[in-house]
Simulated scan of single mutants.
Amino acid sequence: MTSESPLADKKTRIAYNKELRAKGVPAKACGSCFAVKAFTQFNKCASKPDGRMSKCRDCHRAAMAKWNRENADRKRQWYEANAESQRAYFRRYYAENADAKREYARQWHAANPEKARAQAQRKRARKAAACVEDFTPAELFAAWEDAAIYDCYLCGLPFNEDDEVHLEHVVPISGGGTHEVANLLPAHARCNSMKHAADPLEAWQRVQRDTHGDAVAEARMRYMQAHTA
């Protein structure tokens, strides 16, 4: 839709979306392109009345890419000034949350035994066909430090004190990736839950170029491709 759409008016759009919710229709009008799309086209957001962000996923990605391009220099300066605090954050986060993560996994396995067994079987099958490298958390952090990787590989933004961090196989094991240091990168938990079926390697390449420029993106690709090609 164009800006001539009646949904371009914020009050009209809010009323329209409220009416859709009242009727139980799982759709809403995007606050940027004004197109009416299914909920599946919007990222989750608990603070919104319908539990979805106001911008559709395409508009949200475009807005983030634009912000990253316009703020690339400022972000690089921030990384340089806060490199040590980011390293300390990673070490502290994993040290403080290791027990909680293990307990959550134990409770989930106890409550979902059939799913847990199926998940374990799939994981064993994938790892049997993949290259698996033994490494310690310290070796993983050291590799990230050498490559100056302190940001979320999916959105390109730094981690805050309250952020939950996920380790991601950039090339999924199910897609032929390896369980090696070079194929593991940090991601916000919220970004990981939002990527759905998007190709993670393409998402990572796009974010790196938008955030850091071609030269840094190409250097990081060479780092990863040394083991994942």
Rank of each mutant, 00 (worst) to 15 (best):
R102Y: 11
F42I: 00
E139M: 07
L185P: 00
G51N: 12
R92N: 04
A98D: 15
C191L: 02
A128Y: 10
R91W: 08
E4Q: 13
T12V: 05
D162F: 11
Q121K: 15
D199P: 11
T12W: 01
P186L: 03
R92I: 01
N112S: 02
C131Q: 14
Y104E: 14
P49E: 10
G177T: 12
C45M: 08
R92T: 10
Y79V: 13
E218D: 13
E80C: 06
A217H: 09
H188R: 13
A29C: 04
P172L: 11
I149M: 06
D199V: 12
R91Q: 13
A118Q: 06
R126W: 13
A138V: 08
D214G: 00
N97I: 04
D163G: 08
W144E: 02
H109T: 12
R91S: 12
A217P: 08
E202C: 07
A35G: 14
K127Y: 12
F141S: 03
G31A: 11
A148S: 08
D134P: 03
R220S: 08
V216F: 04
A29K: 00
R124C: 09
A98N: 15
L154F: 15
P186V: 03
C59L: 12
E70M: 12
R91P: 01
A229C: 09
P6Q: 01
C191P: 03
F34E: 00
T2W: 04
I149F: 03
N97P: 06
K195S: 08
D162V: 10
N160W: 06
A65G: 07
A148L: 06
M224A: 14
A111P: 03
R74F: 07
M194V: 05
L201S: 04
A217Y: 09
E19I: 00
C191K: 01
R13T: 00
A182Q: 02
E139P: 01
Q41S: 10
Q107S: 13
L154Q: 11
H212L: 08
K101R: 14
A125K: 07
E84D: 14
R91L: 12
I14M: 02
K37D: 06
V36T: 15
R126M: 15
R222E: 10
L20N: 06
G177M: 12
W78H: 08
F141W: 06
C152S: 05
K101T: 09
D199H: 11
T12Y: 02
E80T: 11
H109Q: 14
H227N: 13
Q107E: 15
T136G: 02
A219L: 11
A111I: 02
M64A: 12
E168V: 09
E80R: 14
V165Q: 07
Y104P: 00
N97R: 11
E133I: 06
A116F: 07
Y223G: 00
V165L: 10
F90T: 05
R76T: 05
A46V: 00
L157C: 09
D151G: 04
Y89D: 10
N71R: 09
C45A: 13
I173L: 15
A197E: 14
M64P: 03
F159H: 01
T40N: 13
A118Y: 00
A29F: 02
S32K: 02
W67M: 11
A22S: 05
A148W: 03
Y94M: 01
L184F: 10
E70Q: 15
R102N: 14
